[in-house]
């Protein structure tokens, strides 16, 4: 019996990444722009989605995939109430969505009837960062009460994202949150990041975010 070393050099996420690429191809074929929204629990992912629906539903058709770790449909129900199709993924305790889960959900989504797909990831600042889903843009929703040190403590989630929404700006007068320190941490990790301070309560920043999103959707669907 002899031993030998076999060179592998294969990314551990390669199987997931292949399915993510399939998802992307499917979305591109249908002319759909897709975003993956990640955040800690309670940062306001669903509120941001509802504000986005309110701002854009006259211009584009929106579908939502809701990822939750528990078998609940609280978030999906809110989306359906807002008049949009929502597919619920229950991850069965898993802490993130992965590309195969999204692939399954895409089969249930009326793809021919939507222009924008919003994927709400499981509330978690760690695990979702490692799993590509096939979306065109990854978005993080940070909220001011979480503290200004989050980029320093959870650096990975701020890498590879395109937009950062800093939610709950209406609470700034009441809490210790150094926006400059927060933004510096984010810029170290991701210098090209676009950020939108926002309050889903007052509506501040929703227009700017919606305009950014609309221009990206139009670029994808070739309407511009």
């Amino acid at each position: 019996m002899s031993t030998k070393t076999v060179t592998v050099v294969e990314n551990i996420m390669s199987a997931n990444d292949r399915v993510a690429q399939e998802n992307r191809n499917q979305l591109v074929e249908q002319g759909i722009f897709a975003i993956n929204i990640m955040a800690s629990p309670g940062a306001g992912k669903t509120s941001v989605i509802l504000q986005t629906i309110k701002a854009l539903s006259k211009h584009v058709r929106i579908g939502v995939i809701e990822g939750d770790t528990a078998p609940v449909t609280i978030d999906a129900d809110k989306i359906i109430k807002a008049g949009m199709p929502a597919i619920q993924i229950n991850t069965g305790g898993a802490c993130h969505l992965d590309a195969p889960m999204v692939n399954t959900a895409l089969k249930q989504m009326p793809l021919a009837e939507i222009d924008l797909l919003i994927i709400e990831n499981v509330g978690n600042l760690i695990c979702p960062a490692g799993f590509k889903l096939g979306s065109h843009a990854n978005i993080v929703v940070a909220s001011t009460p979480e503290g200004d040190d989050k980029p320093y403590k959870y650096p990975n989630i701020y890498r590879g994202i395109e937009v950062l929404i800093i939610n709950k700006t209406d609470l700034l007068p009441y809490i210790e949150f150094d926006m400059d320190y927060f933004q510096k941490g984010v810029k170290m990790l991701n210098p090209d990041l676009v950020s939108f301070p926002m309050s889903c309560k007052t509506g501040e920043g929703v227009d700017q975010w919606s305009q950014w999103l609309l221009s990206r959707i139009r670029r994808t669907s070739g309407n511009e």
Partner: peptide, 22 residues
């Protein structure tokens, strides 16, 4: 300066395996 870029630390792969042949 805060104007910095990441140059290493995102590696995540299987480099090699050692095997016994038949």
């Amino acid at each position: 300066s805060y104007r910095v870029s990441v140059i290493a630390g995102e590696e995540f792969y299987v480099e090699s395996i050692a095997v016994e042949a038949e």
